[in-house]
Design a binder for these strands. Structure first.
Length: 222
DNA sequence: GACCAGGCACATC
DNA sequence: GATGTGCATGGT
């Protein structure tokens, strides 16, 4: 029987182990808040390597700003972000997000981030193409507000190791972290980044380690 | 040449 | 409410 107290300890312990092993991740990999938003949309079900190419295309074309992209047709955006895949769909989603940003917040991300987290999350979720993970990534990594980002890696790692079960939904997983950890944006930032790092090293190269205790995970990575 | 990747919306049962 | 499908490129 896992009590609340021990779950907190377990989550903290895992964090300490991963942090010791990987060190500070310096996430999200982006130069600006706007780049975070673009990356969050482009990385939907897509390897980050491909997103980098797409973002580089936008930078090279001098298009990586809300005002610049706002005035571009979807077809132009699609052409630039091609390497990230699903480019027609993502071009529409990007355009919708940017339209929201420009028309409601005058293209000012800081202004958008002044909204309280619950309202901001609902606003983002009302944009077609912005789902829970994308919204939470924007709130945490573009706004630096404390919300826990749950992604496929989080689900895979923590379900494989028995901390959540198969039918646990997004909000429940999010609550597990948020009910047991300080609401510190830097902590949530780092924890999610460490999960991604773990998955990249571990899930790929050592698929047979599914059954090893998560607390011992770093030992299996070397 | 399969198989997968830091989702999401929509259709169908 | 659960389950399935389209979207598309590039790396392993």
């Amino acid at each position: 029987m896992i009590t609340l107290g021990s779950k907190r300890k377990e989550l903290e312990h895992i964090y300490q182990l991963l942090y010791k092993h990987f060190g500070r991740r310096h996430w999200w990999p982006a130069d600006t808040a706007f780049e975070v938003i673009v990356g969050a949309i482009l990385t939907q079900n897509t390897a980050w390597k491909n997103v980098e190419k797409a973002i580089n295309n936008l930078k090279t074309a001098n298009m990586l700003s809300p005002v610049k992209l706002y005035s571009q047709p979807i077809s132009t955006i699609a052409e630039l972000i091609k390497p990230s895949g699903f480019y027609n769909q993502k071009a529409k989603r990007l355009k919708l997000m940017i339209t929201f940003l420009v028309e409601r917040y005058n293209g000012n991300i800081e202004e958008m981030c002044k909204k309280n987290t619950v309202d901001l999350r609902n606003e983002l979720l009302s944009i077609k193409g912005i789902g829970k993970e994308t919204a939470d990534s924007i709130i945490l990594y573009a706004c630096n507000k404390p919300i826990f980002v749950v992604d496929a890696y989080t689900y895979r790692i923590f379900s494989r190791h028995g901390l959540i079960d198969k039918q646990t939904d997004y909000e429940e997983i999010q609550e597990m972290f948020m009910n047991n950890l300080d609401h510190d944006p830097q902590l949530f930032n780092e924890y999610h980044a460490l999960i991604v790092e773990t998955a990249k090293h571990f899930c790929k190269t050592k698929p047979l380690c599914e059954s090893c205790p998560l607390s011992e995970l770093p030992r299996y990575i070397d």
